[in-house]
């Protein structure tokens, strides 16, 4: 049995897909809020992905991925059921604390809906009143709504264009929840940094504790390079071993957003290089097929 075998794949849209990977030990150890580092192949890069779910009995973990650059696009193409990842290490990071909050709002934006799900479930199991707020660009991108609804007491969908649920960003959903409930203890938000920043700004004046899960650039994920350092209040923390969860009101989001742009040029280069190579391979295939048929 190959290591890190992909046992299930599901495509949510043109760009988002789910992989369920066999790793019994990790399925046993994983807790909500933790992440893994994946390498697709020997020459690959190490990329961090949040553990969206885990099935201890089946011995699998679930990753939900958005094809944004070279590695995630190549994974979208090559990671089929029965294939294996070259490397998969984790669970990394400190598990999200399931606090004693009695009433929580779990906010997931886009892909962030996946990792916030096990947290919502954990809060539900701990007896909290859970309000789920999820945001997507439009209704075609919506996924896991039924699954999510099942662990929530209230569930609010927001779409940018209003094609599903309420029209607007997740902050609109938070506003709706806050208006109805004066006694919200905690907000947990996972999604693009700009969305988490919005959530933190929305709750700051209300003084509602807000936890966010940061996604800086990482290499090893074990605390030995500092590539993932983030500014939390007046301290520098490494998201991979001190996080990835931090108090959203203390996070310097502008610093995070700037540091995420560090490799924009190289990311573009890698993608172009890959697509060019892919094109060349395709070209070769076609020309050899043409030759083959000519011979016949």
């Amino acid at each position: 049995m190959p290591d890190f075998e992909i046992v299930t794949r599901e495509d949510f849209s043109d760009v988002t897909y789910l992989l369920e990977v066999r790793h019994p030990l990790m399925a046993k150890a994983a807790k909500p809020g933790q992440f893994v580092i994946v390498m697709l192949h020997e020459n690959g890069e190490r990329i961090p992905l949040t553990i969206a779910d885990f099935d201890r009995e089946k011995g699998t973990i679930t990753l939900v991925i958005q094809a944004v650059g070279k590695t995630t696009r190549q994974m979208q193409q090559e990671c089929q059921v029965g294939t294996s990842l070259y490397a998969l290490v984790g669970p990394m990071g400190i598990p999200s604390p399931v606090s004693h909050a009695k009433k929580v709002v779990c906010v997931g934006g886009g892909l962030g809906v996946a990792p916030i799900y096990p947290q919502a479930r954990a809060f539900k199991e701990a007896g909290a009143y859970v309000i789920g707020v999820v945001g997507f660009r439009n209704k075609d991108l919506v996924f896991w709504d039924k699954k999510f609804r099942a662990v929530c007491d209230e569930f609010i969908i927001c779409t940018d264009d209003g094609s599903a649920g309420i029209k607007g960003l997740v902050t609109a959903g938070i506003a709706q929840a806050v208006e109805k409930h004066a006694d919200i203890d905690e907000v947990i938000a996972i999604g693009p940094p700009i969305m988490m920043k919005g959530c933190a700004e929305a709750t700051r004046p209300l003084k509602i504790k807000t936890m966010v899960s940061l996604n800086p650039v990482m290499v090893d994920g074990t605390g030995m390079c500092g590539g993932c350092r983030v500014k939390i209040g007046d301290q520098v923390k490494f998201a991979c071993v001190d996080g990835p969860d931090f108090d959203g009101h203390l996070v310097d989001f502008d610093d995070l957003l700037m540091r995420l742009r560090r490799y924009t040029k190289e990311e573009r280069m890698a993608l172009d290089h890959w697509e060019h190579e892919k094109g060349c391979r395709l070209q070769k295939k076609i020309s050899s097929a043409v030759k083959e048929s000519a011979r016949k």
């Binding site: 020459n43 890069e45 590695t71 290499v219 090893d220 490799y263 040029k265 190289e266 280069m269 890698a270």
Partner: peptide
């Protein structure tokens, strides 16, 4: 780490960049 282990020196044939 980027250069030695991840072989960023061979980017983009290896995927890890180190400008």
């Amino acid at each position: 780490t980027r250069c030695n282990l991840m072989r960023a020196k061979e980017f983009p044939n290896f995927d890890t960049p180190q400008p």
